[in-house]
Design a protein around this nucleic acid. Structure first.
Length: 696
DNA sequence: GAGCACTGC
């Protein structure tokens, strides 16, 4: 597969096998699937680095309860190991082989690749499951790809995951919350089901700590169980097939990595051979600034910088902007993509030969005391730096320019990032563990323990919502109902309250809208138009009711994309809202919730919202000139976000959906309320916090 | 009058 090509000529064909670890490949030309004969595919399979280890892997899986596979990008482990297992008989007798991925797109693309290699139709012998999409057939499917979140959900019906013979947890090094939870629970399952085999696949040598975690011994001290199965995890390394990447460091620390990144791109263009450039910065604002500087340079037709084609890449981009990034670089041009971390794991760009690494990314941090999540620009880990550099070695040997010193890399950069578990609000995780019968949350065997303060905060929130009782057990029925609904527990509580109040139709719409990023198109510099359009939908009660108006308008337009375009509404987001709402309706009906509309009674709707969000109440500061509010819970200074329809309206009392913290704490999605509803919705909470209700 | 790294059920 190691083909080279001259710029301007047709690019070599590539396939998804090149990329399973790195996420999803975007083809600039459609893959020539018709030319893949079976024999051809078989040869390709045998050329993958992992093929040499086929016998070893099968031997280890046979005799060890847990196998840890350290494999670099492009080793082929994700697509091949499930097939080896199937060929060795692990799917016989109605059993299933599972392979989990952190991302939905990866699940779909890996599954279709494996189905193609096996010459079967996707959804039959090889299937996949992601939320809202189950492409498996019971009794037929033998290899199943799924997100780790889906496997966690499956445990609620089948706690010991009895239908699986082998579970491969892929991308474990990413340490997402669901991967960490899954690993802790799988360890528990293995104690009850010693015959279950686990394969943990990771790109980094964190294998040692992973191995320690899974090291279990029988009480009698033997390292094997009665059937001779070794309890000691084994570790196997598989090399990748990336090309070498030359690493360059700066001599002196840089004071302005943005400027330095721009300078480096210009230098590469001047001195280096052909090949696209990928620059890692932290966020949209920074990226747009860097793009602008470079575009200005490139627009000077007389300078040789006119050969630069500069493009931004972040998740908020529209479809059409994303298409530009994955299109072929025009003849005589050098493509420069300036990206967030999205290009580190989720998306793979072809043709990158040079990487510029700022050494920073935006990371989420959670403060359990204030209950606020913050996005902070923070230094990346060595593991991330390595991953970023690897992006330069996909088509041929490349170069990575790190905008930090070698000394810093060696002596100061942390080896691994902080697991997400330790940087997040844990309300959803705690309720999920409770639903799985894990009573002692604080004593759970975590791969890395979250801060006790975060767990205590989560328990408090769930208790105040009436989801947990005094003994920290799920309440009946609402605790169990909330656990069944795959949404934030505060949103789920709102849905359950709507059942009693008779406005479930409206609240399900609101829940669906809150689960997408934003239903408005992102408009830089076009705020005026958006604001005017918003007035057409704006409700005096606030944003949630405004969302209902938009949803109604969308349905009345016949779900028209034209209508969305005219109204500054994100069509794809609205389609997702409709989808999600449908799924939620189906789910809550199963829980015995009756769909009913309150026919525009916005007071009832707001009361249902309060049932979940009473702890997010804020009061306008008296005599406040600048719209300052204080939260009722802890007198935190907050403001209504300018995107809200209640911005500058400043009702005396509001309830917000979430806080966004930048230079100020902004309340996102706000409704106006009557404070007496708070006591009505949560007497326990408000009596508890305010023994003297004189403030009302 | 301002801004959202990235996922997932």
């Amino acid at each position: 597969m190691s083909q080279f090509w001259k710029p301007g000529t047709e690019r070599p064909r590539s396939s998804l096998v090149d990329d399973e670890e790195g996420g999803v490949l975007f083809y600039s030309t459609p893959p020539p699937s018709s030319s893949y004969g079976y024999a051809n595919l078989e040869k390709q399979r045998q050329r993958l680095p992992v093929f040499k280890y086929r016998t070893a892997i099968l031997y280890l899986v046979e005799y060890h309860s847990t196998v840890i596979i350290v494999g670099e990008t492009g080793s082929g482990k994700t697509t091949q190991i499930p097939q080896y297992l199937k060929e060795a008989g692990w799917a016989e007798g109605g059993r299933l082989i599972a392979c989990t991925q952190p991302r939905r797109l990866a699940v779909q693309s890996v599954a279709s690749r494996v189905a193609e290699e096996m010459g079967v139709k996707i959804g039959e012998e090889v299937g996949y499951t992601i939320r809202f999409e189950d492409k498996t057939v019971q009794g037929v499917t033998k290899i199943k790809f799924l997100t780790d979140g889906v496997l966690l959900r499956e445990m609620m019906d089948d706690p010991l995951l009895t239908k699986y013979s082998v579970i491969m947890v892929d991308e474990a090094h990413e340490r997402s919350i669901s991967t960490d939870m899954l690993l802790g629970l799988l360890k528990k399952i293995q104690r009850r089901r010693p015959e279950l085999r686990l394969i943990i696949s990771s790109a980094t040598i964190e294998a040692e700590s992973m191995s320690n975690f899974f090291r279990t011994r029988k009480k009698n001290g033997h390292a094997t169980d009665d059937n001779g199965l070794k309890m000691e995890p084994s570790i196997l390394s598989v090399e990748g097939k990336g090309y070498p990447v030359e690493i360059h460091y700066v001599q002196e620390p840089v004071s302005d990595y943005l400027q330095s990144a721009v300078d480096t791109v210009l230098l590469i263009h001047e001195k280096e051979a052909v090949g696209d450039v990928l620059v890692f910065l932290t966020g949209q604002e920074e990226i747009d600034a860097a793009v602008q500087i470079l575009v200005e340079k490139a627009s000077d037709k007389t300078s040789h910088f006119s050969g630069l084609l500069v493009l931004p890449l972040y998740s908020g981009l529209s479809r059409s902007d994303q298409d530009l990034i994955f299109s072929q670089t025009p003849k005589g041009k050098r493509k420069v993509v300036i990206s967030t971390n999205i290009a580190e794991t989720s998306l793979t760009l072809e043709g990158v030969v040079f990487v510029v690494d700022s050494g920073f990314s935006k990371q989420r941090f959670y403060n359990p005391i204030s209950d606020i999540e913050n996005l902070v620009v923070a230094p990346i880990s060595k593991a991330s730096a390595k991953q970023r550099a690897g992006r330069a070695g996909r088509v041929r040997s490349g170069k990575c320019f790190r905008l930090y010193t070698e000394d810093y890399f060696v002596k100061e950069m942390p080896a691994e990032g902080i697991p997400e578990m330790q940087r997040s609000n844990l309300v959803s995780s705690v309720i999920q563990l409770k639903a799985l019968g894990i009573d002692n949350i604080l004593g759970f065997d975590w791969l890395a323990s979250p801060p006790p303060e975060s767990m205590i905060r989560a328990l408090e929130v769930l208790y105040s919502l009436g989801i947990l009782d005094e003994d920290a057990k799920l309440t009946t029925p609402s605790g169990f109902q909330v656990a069944e609904i795959p949404l934030d527990p505060m949103v789920s509580k709102m849905i359950i309250a709507a059942d009693t109040l008779g406005c479930s139709e409206e609240i399900l719409t609101i829940a669906a809208v809150l689960s997408v990023q934003s239903i408005w198109v992102s408009v830089r510099g076009k705020h005026k138009g958006l604001d005017e359009v918003k007035l057409r939908f704006a409700a005096a009660e606030g944003d949630h009711v405004t969302h209902l108006n938009v949803y109604k308008g969308f349905l009345q337009s016949g779900k028209s994309s034209q209508w969305c375009y005219k109204n500054y509404i994100n069509y794809h987001a609205m389609k997702k809202v409709v989808d999600t709402r449908e799924q939620l309706c189906r789910l809550v009906r199963r829980l015995g919730i009756v769909l009913k509309s309150c026919q525009g009674d916005t007071q009832t709707i707001r009361k249902a919202i309060l049932a979940g969000f009473f702890s997010h109440a804020s009061q306008l500061e008296e005599y406040s000139q600048n719209g300052m509010y204080k939260t009722v819970r802890n007198s935190q200074e907050v403001y209504i976000h300018p995107s809200s329809v209640l911005f500058r309206v400043n009702p005396k009392w509001v309830v917000y959906h979430s806080l966004v913290s930048t230079d100020k704490h902004y309340m996102h999605n706000v409704i106006a309320i009557d404070p007496s509803w708070l006591i009505e919705a949560a007497p326990h909470f408000y009596q508890l916090k305010r023994p003297n209700p004189a403030i009302f």
